[in-house]
């Protein structure tokens, strides 16, 4: 019987969990450490209204938001203005940031996406009801760390994707991809991160009872 590891590669589509885990990849340590720092800075903005922390977040994220909006079809001056807005929204809505449910990049992404819908389509964006309890005042540090680690491994897995598959994901977020095309990328990656978030939501509901 032949050794399965020598079998020719099969096309598995976009099942990211087959990609290298965090510990195999030298870059993840940096990503993770950086992201932990972003969380600490964001918490200082949220709890202490710390403008130095805000400046550090701005310097790192504003150029990325601008690049993201340009990818989505905005011209440079508009993208610049919107990146400014996104960062000031981050300041004003900081109380909603919950590190047990999102990394700083994820949270900024949601603000930037809503700004993009407003800017390119002139539409409002219907949002789900807030969870009535808001962020837990003292979220479990293990939850925070685990979520940040999963987010970091997601980045690593995505960076390791073959170019055509990565392109497909980028198209799904930056262009209008049809639902059947999108269905090709939802076999996807998010198994563990999804159950982690589900667990966090269940715990929060339970704690409120």
């Amino acid at each position: 019987m032949r050794n399965p590891s020598l079998a020719p590669p099969i096309n598995r589509g976009l099942i990211l969990r087959d990609f290298p885990k965090a510990e195999d990849t030298p870059t993840v340590q940096d990503t993770n450490e950086n992201d932990t720092n972003w969380v600490a800075l964001m918490v200082r903005v949220r709890d202490q209204r710390d403008k130095t922390a805000f400046a550090a977040l701005f310097t790192h994220f504003a150029p990325r938001i601008k690049g993201f909006l340009i990818n989505s079809g905005a011209d440079a001056p508009l993208a610049e203005e919107c990146a400014q807005d996104v960062m000031t929204t981050l300041w004003h809505k900081a109380a909603q940031f919950d590190p047990a449910r999102a990394s700083v990049a994820t949270w900024i992404f949601t603000i930037a996406r809503n700004r993009r819908i407003d800017m390119l389509r002139r539409q409002r964006r219907p949002e789900p009801d807030d969870l009535t309890w808001g962020p837990a005042p003292e979220p479990d540090q293990a939850d925070v760390l685990a979520l940040q680690q999963e987010t970091a491994s997601l980045s690593v897995a995505m960076a390791a994707l073959p170019a055509p598959q990565r392109d497909l994901i980028e198209k799904a977020y930056f262009k209008d991809l049809s639902q059947s095309e999108i269905a090709k990328i939802t076999g996807l990656p998010l198994g563990t991160i999804k159950s982690r978030l589900r667990l966090a939501l269940d715990r929060l509901r339970h704690a409120m009872k």
Binding site: G67, F68, F109, R113, E150, K194
Partner: peptide
């Protein structure tokens, strides 16, 4: 979870200097 994927894309977006 899909927001997290969006966050990963944002993190790797080409910087465009302000």
């Amino acid at each position: 979870s899909y927001d997290a994927l969006g966050g990963a894309l944002l993190n790797e977006a080409n910087d465009s200097s302000m």
